[in-house]
């Protein structure tokens, strides 16, 4: 499949938009008309052709522009990419997983030739043609995680496993929904999730950790998470919150359709073969309310979900200021008809 990459921005003039095909494949996260935290983990198996689950690593029409935005973020704040020294083996594991997946599933765009440790990687959309020695950092322009992370959509963190815990000891995080890698690096699973409301008491993290510690190589898993973003800004980091927070005050009944975005994270996890670490990808998809409402089921369901969302969760996700305006705008798409179970369009 040859992708047509869009030339668009995620800052300043915000020219990002989805093609009709991209809207159709959007991973709408609400399987019913309400939402509550759950350990909604399922096997990361290959899905239907054209869906975001078709391949383990999903590359789409926003690829080139997203990589350009990531480079801007890293230039301004190198702390968005950090790895503790003991994570170097896991970094190579990650590079291998991503390169082999991308080259296998998108041969028109990427190719990988391997002769022992001598690797030849070609990334056509980004104009990269590079021969390097697998395992030798000196043959790459960056450390392995940053090298491949600058060429793959989605944020990545790598979790070391020891003492019956997962430790976030490396990551390249430029499109985060309001959490700081620089603050959280080195924390364990409970610590970095500490600010999440309600879920600790519900035992969600105990169960999720138990599950993840037992993950096996070759059996990746995934879940969806979501929030909302004003303007198509990928870099909604706390580092820059003092610059973008004000956007939340700019929503009016007239501009909801273009300004308010549902932001969905396809989170996938892989056990890595050499390091026994766990790779966590946070692949971000955004959709404007105007785009979302073109799918009747989603236009009906989203206002119902937002209306019944517990206030703590709305606060944590930062929706409070524009939640009602968005519900009001969406309500004209909700004719009260019942919706079918599952997230996909009818």
């Amino acid at each position: 499949m040859v992708l047509a990459f869009k030339n668009e921005t995620f800052r300043d003039d915000f020219t990002f938009s989805n093609s009709p095909a991209a809207i159709r494949r959007f991973p709408f996260p609400f399987v019913e008309d309400k939402y509550m935290y759950s350990v909604n983990i399922e096997p990361h198996e290959l899905g239907p052709k054209g869906s975001v689950y078709e391949f383990p690593i999903d590359i789409d029409e926003h690829y080139v522009s997203e990589m350009r935005d990531r480079a801007l973020v890293l230039d301004a704040d190198p702390g968005r990419c950090q790895a503790l020294p003991h994570m170097i083996t896991a970094q190579w594991d990650m590079l291998e997983l991503l390169m082999t997946s991308m080259a296998r599933d998108y041969p028109e765009h990427f190719s990988l030739t391997r002769d022992g440790n001598q690797w030849h990687w070609i990334n056509r959309p980004l104009g990269i043609d590079h021969k390097f020695t697998f395992g030798d950092v000196a043959t790459l322009p960056y450390q392995p995680m940053e090298y491949i992370g600058r060429q793959c959509q989605g944020d990545f963190s790598i979790q070391d496993q020891r003492d019956g815990q997962l430790w976030m000891d490396a990551g390249i995080i430029t499109t985060q929904a309001d959490w700081s890698l620089d603050f959280d690096v080195g924390m364990n699973f409970f610590e970095w999730h500490a600010p999440v409301p309600l879920a600790h008491q519900a035992g969600v993290f105990d169960r999720a950790l138990k599950f993840l510690l037992n993950m096996q190589h070759g059996r990746p898993v995934r879940r969806l998470n979501w929030t909302m973003t004003i303007n198509s800004r990928l870099d909604t980091s706390p580092e820059n919150y003092h610059k973008w927070g004000i956007d939340r005050t700019t929503v009016t009944p007239e501009n909801v359709g273009d300004k308010v975005h549902l932001r969905v994270e396809l989170q996938a996890l892989w056990r890595l073969p050499r390091s026994n670490a766990i790779l966590f990808s946070i692949r971000c998809y955004m959709i404007k309310m105007r785009e979302l409402a073109t799918v009747p089921k989603w236009g009906r369901r989203l206002p119902r979900v937002l209306r019944t969302l517990p206030d703590e969760i709305a606060d944590y996700k930062g929706l409070t200021r524009y939640r009602q305006t968005t519900i009001d705008w969406l309500s004209k798409y909700d004719d009260g008809a019942p919706t079918s179970l599952g997230g996909g369009p009818d």
Partner: peptide, 27 residues
């Protein structure tokens, strides 16, 4: 000089709590 909300989130690595601009949405 930004006015920071002292968040109840602690980093052992930094031995510090996290401060986040409190009036970003209400300058």
């Amino acid at each position: 000089g930004l006015l920071l909300l002292v968040r109840d989130h602690y980093s052992k690595r930094l031995a510090a709590f996290q401060g986040v601009c409190i009036n970003a949405e209400t300058p």
